[in-house]
């Protein structure tokens, strides 16, 4: 892996391009319910996500934010209702156009570069095309100097950046992030947010959970507020922070939500 400082790239970076493939969006959920151990955790979730805005899913602990992401991404199967990628071509696998970054990144016990290589292999990227993509995302996430380091030796913030780089390399149309900065320090949080913003700028649809209100204000175009497994509102961010529609959201913003 070459050093980005000594070898400035003159070509357009392979990942830096707006999406041109047909969209799998909109994503629509209709009457989606989810139970665990006989208890209903998600109630009648109905909404549509179109291309464009950054959606932040807000809510107190136990509101069902992570479950909602997993239901959207297909990691969980709803017990009722359905989840549909309406733009997906018949027979195509919508999962190939999505990625998810978890609160605690799961990195393989290999080098940083090999972690990305593995994701690209799963996305059927030809072996000869992978090194350029890997180098590009490592440069853009500031991880190039760690390319040959064991991934699990990175710091928490660097591991999360690698998880983002791994997702980025596969050029997802939709990126789900489950509290990606919950266990990071402010500097790492800032770096992760920058990467998210850049990916958004390049056309990746961002859907992210957080319970950090300041972060939601920084990143959100649109807020989905969940409370006890119910979607209370789906509101443009400015409007949400000025005048939330639901009483629960108002209480949450004031820090007085009882749960």
């Amino acid at each position: 892996m070459s050093d980005p400082i000594t070898q400035p790239s003159t070509e357009a970076p392979p990942v830096a391009r707006r999406r041109t493939t047909p969209s799998i969006l909109p994503l629509s959920l209709e009457g989606v319910c989810f139970d665990a151990r006989g208890k209903r955790l998600i109630h009648d979730l109905t909404f549509t996500l179109d291309a464009g805005p950054r959606t932040i899913i807000l809510g107190p602990n136990g509101a069902g934010k992570s479950l909602t992401l997993r239901l959207c991404h297909g990691l969980l199967t709803p017990v009722g209702g359905h989840v549909a990628w309406e733009g997906a071509a018949p027979g195509a696998d919508p999962l190939k156009h999505q990625a998810m970054v978890f609160q605690r990144p799961v990195l393989l016990r290999r080098t940083v570069a090999q972690n990305i290589d593995y994701a690209l292999k799963l996305h059927d990227v030809a072996r000869r095309d992978r090194p350029a993509l890997i180098e590009d995302v490592l440069n853009r996430t500031g991880l190039a100097r760690f390319a040959k380091s064991p991934a699990r030796h990175l710091s928490g913030g660097e591991q999360q950046k690698l998880a983002l780089a791994r997702a980025w390399a596969t050029k997802p149309e939709v990126l789900f992030l489950d509290e990606p900065t919950a266990s990071l320090d402010p500097a790492a949080t800032h770096a992760v947010e920058n990467i998210i913003q850049t990916m958004h700028g390049e056309g990746t649809r961002i859907v992210m959970t957080t319970h950090d209100l300041a972060q939601a204000r920084r990143l959100a175009d649109e807020i989905m507020f969940l409370h006890k497994g119910h979607l209370m509102e789906k509101t443009p961010a400015d409007e949400f922070f000025d005048a939330p529609r639901s009483g629960e959201a108002a209480a949450f913003l004031k820090g007085e939500l009882r749960w």
Binding site: L75, D93, L95, V106, L122, H123, T170
Partner: peptide
């Protein structure tokens, strides 16, 4: 237990 969500998310 540790890997399944990440692996399935990547399409494995």
């Amino acid at each position: 237990v540790e890997y399944s969500e990440q692996m399935r998310s990547m399409g494995a």
